[in-house]
Design a protein around this nucleic acid. Structure first.
Lengths: 183, 183
DNA sequence: CGAATCATGTAATGGGTTACATGATTCA
DNA sequence: TGAATCATGTAACCCATTACATGATTCG
């Protein structure tokens, strides 16, 4: 059971480590819940991962696994000292280059010459509404957690909000441009 | 060799289809080049994929493969009528929900309570510069391709630019906030 | 008490990333 | 002509997604 870290862990792994560090010992299901109403908006993953990832981390000695003694015998994971060290090391290290946009709506626009003007218009409208709704969602979320979340977490929500508003505005402007200057 | 599409293709697949549709018959390496200076900023993938993906598409009958007769016998791919139909179908369909942020810098900020104030400051500075440089890159790219790219492609670059400026501004504001109100 | 829904997990598949490898060309 | 760099490809591994499955609980 080597505690040496062969290569950089996945971001999902750090999410799990981070959650375990702040929640204390947790079952996979508790991780899933915590994910849903905290980092989930930033780094979501399906619930199968909250079973797989802690197991991988346990193999590296970064979390410890024990079982309930009672009926269900659920697995309970807790972060180890080595896990805390690794989390901190990651936190202090340089962030990987920011990801590209990877927005399928934009991708469609890029190949838009193949589509009809109505298709483009539908796409724009669809994207506009979708980002507007998400921005509204962030705004509500920010109000809801204003009391409980810490300063840094609030900041991340703020960037989410700014991002969605930017994209919303982009599609809005684009629609108006289409009206002024139809293709 | 069934031309029926069992399930939705990956976005990477549509990038390849779209490129083949606009470039005409191409070798994997030509695809790689085209990717690098067009959609690459939107949907990048490593060059191993420009070999793997056309093969997958060929299995579905969406592209045709032939080999050079000369020395290298390189593979040359071209989009088939079925491929064009599929590309168009995708273009006209609803876009998948926009992706989450998935920004590792933001992720570190989220777990920032574990780090020291200096760590946070370093992170902010690093992210600020990185997004600023990328925004500058988009601006140059927009000027360079202003003549050749079509209207929709220019639009996608514009969103890239707006996005990067938004994030740049976020980290800039954040740094100033840290100065005003140190943690 | 029966049906939803929540809770809890495993299996299979496939795509993406990384690493490995080796021809060709260019150009100092 | 030798060293970079470009061109071209394959292999292996890992992780994420999807689908499958079945206990528990709630609640009408």
């Amino acid at each position: 059971m080597p505690t040496t870290v062969s290569k950089e862990l996945s971001s999902t792994a750090y999410v799990v480590l981070g959650l375990l560090a702040s929640l204390g010992p947790s079952t996979p299901y508790e991780l899933k819940r915590a994910l849903a109403d905290s980092v989930g908006f930033l780094w979501p993953f399906p619930h199968s991962q909250v079973y797989a990832e802690p197991r991988r981390l346990a193999d590296r000695g970064l979390v410890a696994e024990r079982r309930e003694r009672s009926g269900r015998r659920r697995r309970i994971y807790s972060i180890t000292p080595a896990g805390r060290r690794e989390l901190l090391r990651w936190l202090r290290g340089r962030a990987a280059p920011a990801p590209e946009l990877r927005d399928t709506g934009l991708l469609k626009l890029f190949f838009g010459t193949g589509a009809s003007p109505e298709d483009i218009r539908r796409l724009a409208k669809d994207r506009y509404e979708s980002h507007r709704d998400r921005a509204d969602g962030y705004q509500r979320q920010r109000e809801q957690v204003a009391g409980v979340a810490d300063r840094w977490q609030l900041k991340t929500i703020e960037l989410g909000l700014r991002y969605e508003r930017t994209v919303e505005q982009f599609w809005k402007d684009f629609i108006e441009e289409l009206d002024r200057d139809p293709p």
